[in-house]
Design a protein around this nucleic acid. Structure first.
Lengths: 229, 229
DNA sequence: TTATAAAATATTGTAGACAATAATACAGTA
DNA sequence: TACTGTATTATTGTCTACAATATTTTATAA
């Protein structure tokens, strides 16, 4: 088999750097030194700069000509912006999914939620898995919309940002049961092909998630802002 | 004064190539030869490849490792996808603008529409200007939303795509009076701070525009598809 | 004549060196 | 001591050359 997943150095390093930024290995606001990064990843500066061009396009880093690149810094305000957009776009995705998902896809979605429910019963402290499970659910619906550009937007740059906020602010869901209930409601609406209801439920779901996260960020606020400027 | 607008070769060439793709100088589906392009723009392949990385991130070109890059090809289906997304996002922008625009900004928006009205009276055939004027109006509202990420999404990649469709399919508005009327309605709602109405009107406006464009594309269909594959 | 395989060519991917700009350290002066 | 201008260093931007892969051409055999 030649499932070698052919790719280029720039691609591989780009992926790695995305993860480094999201997980905080490359800290917020950190200056990115090209020769050093090239050495770390074992490549030359050419491909590295291509990777950085893509990171810039994803808005994970900012670049100033002749000065250099820095990792972005997250903010409460931007998180609000992102959730406003997610609410609208994922609402659209749910609406389209209710119209476009096949019977098989709907079945898989239901099975996914069942497994989540079982997992919550088994380990009622493990919120990390729930977090990823939440991702799976939303990811399935996004895919189900069949709108490729919408999929690219939500499952691409925007999703990386959401992941980054979750990692860096450690705001995994603390309400897995409630979230699962809302997921089930959305799933039912999709199964019944009730597009408008699916859209409305999804928007409310994301709005709830936002309020939850905001509340938790308030409490722990001003914990970040560290050694780099 | 040193308003030199400092920038890099990759940036300049990227901008130029964006325009070449949108206007069709680089035709849909065309293979992009790196040495040739580098020669044309008078730079080496390094910066050129950085520019292409950004074009790829904007999804104006597609790249296959070890094979090369091609300009994207537009399709009826993708245009539908884009309008679905625009309807949602610009609806959100109108809603936010109604809440966030300053008194001065609202005044400017009204003045812009007045000048459009005057222009339509003066030259009732000039649809190209109307097209750009339409852009100005939407652009103002997007900016007025004050949601920077939303602004980036709508005024960035997505907007370039819309421009590209307009150029390549020559679908400028053939209903300037009607469009202006709808613009005035939206403007009024924003002036009154009626966010929900502004959102609803904007969604309907874009939906109308989409129907108009689709109708015209139907008639001229299968006129494209040319000499390059 | 058609199909297959090998050679030749062209194109992309990568590395390293040089040039230009910015950041830093240092010295001189008020 | 504080400040300004200069020299030094470091970093980014760019170019050229080479390596690896893909494409095209040519030759050979069925």
């Amino acid at each position: 088999m030649q499932e070698e997943e052919i790719t280029t150095l720039a691609n591989k390093v780009c992926e790695r750097m995305v993860n480094d930024i999201i997980t905080g290995t490359l800290a917020q606001g950190q200056k990115l030194n090209e020769p050093e990064l090239a050495r770390i990843h074992g490549i030359s500066r050419g491909p590295l700069r291509e990777a950085m061009s893509r990171l810039e396009a994803m808005r994970l880093i900012t670049r100033t000509p002749n000065v250099g690149a820095r990792v972005i810094t997250l903010s409460y305000e931007e998180l609000l912006e992102i959730y406003q957009i997610r609410e609208t776009l994922e609402g659209l995705a749910a609406k389209l999914a209710a119209q476009a998902m096949s019977a098989g896809e709907k079945t898989n979605l239901r099975l996914l939620l069942n497994s989540h429910g079982k997992h919550i019963l088994d380990t009622q402290g493990q919120s990390y898995f729930q977090q990823e499970g939440d991702v799976d659910f939303h990811y399935c619906i996004i895919q189900g919309s069949k709108n490729q550009r919408l999929i690219d937007m939500l499952a691409g740059d925007l999703y990386q940002l959401v992941r980054m906020y979750r990692y860096q602010f450690s705001v995994s869901s603390n309400r897995p049961q409630q979230a699962l209930k809302e997921h089930n409601q959305i799933c039912s609406a999709i199964e019944e092909g009730d597009a408008d209801l699916a859209q409305w439920l999804m928007k409310r779901h994301i709005n709830n998630a936002r309020n939850n996260i905001m509340q938790r960020m308030q409490t722990q606020s001003t914990t970040q802002d560290g050694e780099n400027r």
